[in-house]
Amino acid sequence: MYNLNPEQIVKAVYIKSAVAISAQDTFSDNRIPAELMPATISVANAIQPEYKDYISPASARRMAPAVKMGIAAASRALSLAKISNPDGIIAGTGMGCLMDTEKFLNNILENKEEFITPTSFIQSTHNTVAGQIGIMLDCKAYNSTYVHGSLSFESALVDAQLQIEEGAAKNILVGAVDELGIEFYQHTSLRNSQRKSTTLPAGEGAAFFVISDDKEQAMAQLTALETIRNCGIDQLQTRLHTFLTQSKCKLTDIDLLVLGNNGGKWDTYYDRLRAFFPNIRSINYKPLTGEHHSVSAFACWLGCILLSDRSRLNEWDNRITDNTKPRLILLYNQSEGMNHSFMLLKEC
């Protein structure tokens, strides 16, 4: 958690729009998926939107799914927020454009380091998504990409949060994207299996948000966000307490937990945190999407939807018996016992 100059007026940060592309049908009308995906599949491909509504065929022909997902989610988020040109574009990605990275590396191997074509190289860089969004919008404002493993989305969001709080920007497009690629999963699945990292399928997706200093018609307020690289399980209570204290919030203020359980051996962190809130509802979101580096952006989308529309929560009656609309949501995620993030979303 950073510290501002105490004399500086800190502006509140609101989320004006939230759009997700995931393995469930979350893009078409921003609805909460009603069905869980089969847990037996090994990869959970995202449901791809109709891209011609967002990208011209001439541009789309060079774009891998990560770029297309990012542009479609970003375009819709801007449209819902009625913002045509944001004051910044910030993206997070754990692995970047994997499909073009695979193509580029395979080309090098197959052609013995000769005949290397430019397209897959250009498209394989991690900042392709934010860059393409900037080109598409003709937006020459701040453009940055964070590649911080499973804290990539949170890192992008911290940047956006700081800029809004300090008054450096009024509206920022921020989001995260990761794609499965074609071969990468095969090379990493054995490692994940041996480490008992997760029992969920590998996933992919994109989620983009417009965050703003303007409360009008906002979906939620981002009241606090903290990332922690290393946190032993016995330190979790202290870190949570510190986070909530600095956020001027008590345990009893929180009425919904959104947790990143994935069935792996590090779920003990979620169990420990869950025990601090014995009477509070919780949602495990990763079974809906599969596991990937920027899946916490999906959790943020879910939190925004739940806070902004009570009827959406009712769609989940079979999982949440208490239909009371949540007012303050704590999102907690970690990856293999590292890269922890706490996020507080409040109703507007």
């Binding site: 290397i116 074509t117 430019p118």
Partner: peptide, 17 residues
Amino acid sequence: LGLDSIDALELIVLLDK
């Protein structure tokens, strides 16, 4: 066909390969 400068680079590689 509406090809552009990146396509030209791809075609140059194609002719060589």
